[in-house]
Design a protein around this nucleic acid. Structure first.
Lengths: 352, 352
DNA sequence: TTTATTTAAGAAACCGATTTCTTATTTTCT
DNA sequence: AGAAAATAAGAAATCGGTTTCTTAAATAAA
């Protein structure tokens, strides 16, 4: 039972080299399975490596080779279901490709987002995947990323004016389908509760809504269409007002589930039957939507796939294409299809 | 408008040294604000650094100094609310202390957990924070961490037989209080739905339950106490059986909210009124608990604080104590207090 | 058999910081 | 004023891999 007082140093390729009686460079090559090393030596080296409990040192390798085999991700909030699902997807992709994932959260603050970018640059990550904070209006920090020859992938909350790979949901299409579904259920006076105008996500959802009501040639009063009603309380108040209106809506399409929940509470408080008298459709398919009474219809965003897709843009598109320096490099733009989850709040039982 | 064809190299301290006309070592010291450099030089160096858009290279520093200013965290699932909240807390602590956070998920698999540990060792992180996977029975991989002189902090799903810092919830106390609450509401025949025996978490929750019913001197039939009823479906089935029993329980304490939800569905399907005829109390305060009908009482775990506490053990206890090599190093053991969230499912309206 | 080519291994520079050890210069103390 | 001590800057080794460039040996070609 030997208890070592002095903490013995980690074994390095030099230790292996000495023990096997060869040069350190050969050990490195052997461990990396380079063809210029004989199988005999490779076997010898690998055996000795396990024997000495050798641990590869990423830092040393990164310093010399320049690539860190690491992706950094910046999200507004780690513990929001949508983002943690997306991160889970990225982690999966990273694991498959033997990369590390460093996460940062901007907390919806532009200042912190800039700091996160700096940190990841110092960390020398190969790629940064980012979903912008609510506060972010400028993209100078993203230019920094490019300057440092790192790949950049924007996802979900993207700035469309900034050139980079982009992975987004089919917000407009999904909204279009959602509203069309409401129309098919016989609703004719469909209100829209949206978000703040500067975020593309919410704009697209509005576009989808507008397209659907236009196609169906519905007559919608201007005050049915509301921006900045993302939160439960705001939505609830607004819905009560609308429902008390002389010409009230018979359905609501909201860009978040929290908003939908507010509408639901409003309808219940006014004694209106959902989905009979009021139809409701939310967005995001938050966990709680299947537990409300009645359950809430929503749009499932495939967040995990979206995250995986974002990472895969780097792994497939960038890594394999060998980053050919011709300026002809194009930016990948992927749209992840989301699907309608029809629940009680929007499905009228057909009257035979 | 200069477009650089050749990708110019990142500026290093050597570039700064050359431009200012001093030695690289002095630049390093200046940037790190070491006292052995005059303020004049410091100002000069820092100005030149910003001018040249200098980016600190963590890898190089880590290699030389040995410490990476990075914490690695391993959780079973990143996108489970409890864990993503905990990670958010850790990220906060890391940000405050200028450290990076690398996340790995074991996916509840022992094999993958071992791989994660290896990766983090290669990465040369300073500390590993881990919550064990369901599958994990052995701790040889944790020994590897110690061998490599890294700090280890276990949280939530811990192995009590393995010596390390540990951060856990007050599972037993919280359960005790939860059950006591049920008793105060007048419930007398309280059933328990638990988890698998090998996880300390669930054992402790059971202990709390047992203590409370013992203190209240309640007479509980053996079949009221069930293990392995974590999931909704299992719980639902088991609850139906129990409620149809000639001598049915009048309340349930379950170690997860999903289990509680199963019980709720069971009660409703049998036409029983909750909380009138059946009281229900879950654990974890999952998001959906406030949206069920009736809403579910539960135990709020302060997961974000727990994560922050786990990281802070490293920052406060380990980093500051200078890691004095005396074997007298003790392991910190912190218990995070959780709180009861009383909702409709367990609160009987007092009969006057 | 001699020359050209391929193959396998080694030597040494390198990545970009940190850190220790010197040395030159100032300041302080008798 | 002269010796001792403190200060500020520099030189050089170092961390642990990777990578390029040589070189020696083995094989193929002429």
């Amino acid at each position: 039972m030997k208890s070592n007082i002095k903490k013995e140093k980690r074994t390095t390729i030099y230790d292996i080299a000495r023990e096997v009686g060869i040069a350190p460079s050969t050990v490195s090559k052997a461990l990396n399975d380079l063809p210029s090393v004989s199988n005999k030596i490779k076997t010898l080296v690998k055996a000795k490596a396990t024997e000495l409990n050798y641990k590869y040192n990423f830092n040393a390798a990164n310093l010399r080779s320049g690539s860190s085999r690491t992706i950094g991700v910046i999200v507004p909030k780690i513990n929001v279901a949508f983002f943690s699902d997306a991160i889970a997807g990225m982690e999966e992709a990273c694991f498959e490709n033997n990369h590390r994932l460093i996460i940062c959260q901007s907390d919806e603050s532009y200042t912190k987002e800039v700091q996160c970018v700096q940190t990841l640059i110092h960390q020398n990550v190969d790629c940064i995947i980012i979903s912008l904070s609510q506060e972010t209006r400028s993209t100078v920090h993203l230019n920094e990323v490019k300057k440092n020859h790192m790949e950049l992938v924007q996802f979900d909350r993207v700035d469309e004016s900034f050139e980079s790979h982009r992975i987004v949901n089919d917000n407009s299409q999904a909204s279009y389908r959602a509203v069309k579904h409401l129309i098919e259920q016989g609703y004719k006076k469909i209100a829209f509760f949206g978000g703040s105008g500067h975020l593309a996500v919410y704009n697209h959802r509005k576009q989808g809504y507008l397209q659907a009501i236009k196609e169906a040639d519905l007559n919608i009063p201007y005050n049915y269409i509301l921006d900045n009603a993302l939160k439960k309380e705001t939505a609830q108040k607004a819905a009560i007002e609308l429902l008390k209106y002389k010409d009230p809506p018979d359905a609501f399409f909201t860009v978040t589930d929290h908003s939908a929940l507010g509408v639901l509470k409003a309808a219940i408080s006014l004694g209106l039957r959902v989905p009979d008298q009021v139809g409701i459709m939310g967005f995001s398919n938050e966990a709680f939507t299947e537990f409300t009474f009645p359950t809430l219809s929503s749009v499932e965003q495939q967040s995990k796939n979206l995250g995986k897709a974002a990472a895969d843009v780097y792994f497939n598109h960038v890594l394999t294409s060998g980053m050919s320096d011709k300026d002809a490099r194009h930016f990948e733009m992927r749209v992840i299809e989301s699907s309608l989850i029809i629940r009680q709040s929007s499905e009228r039982v057909p009257t035979l």
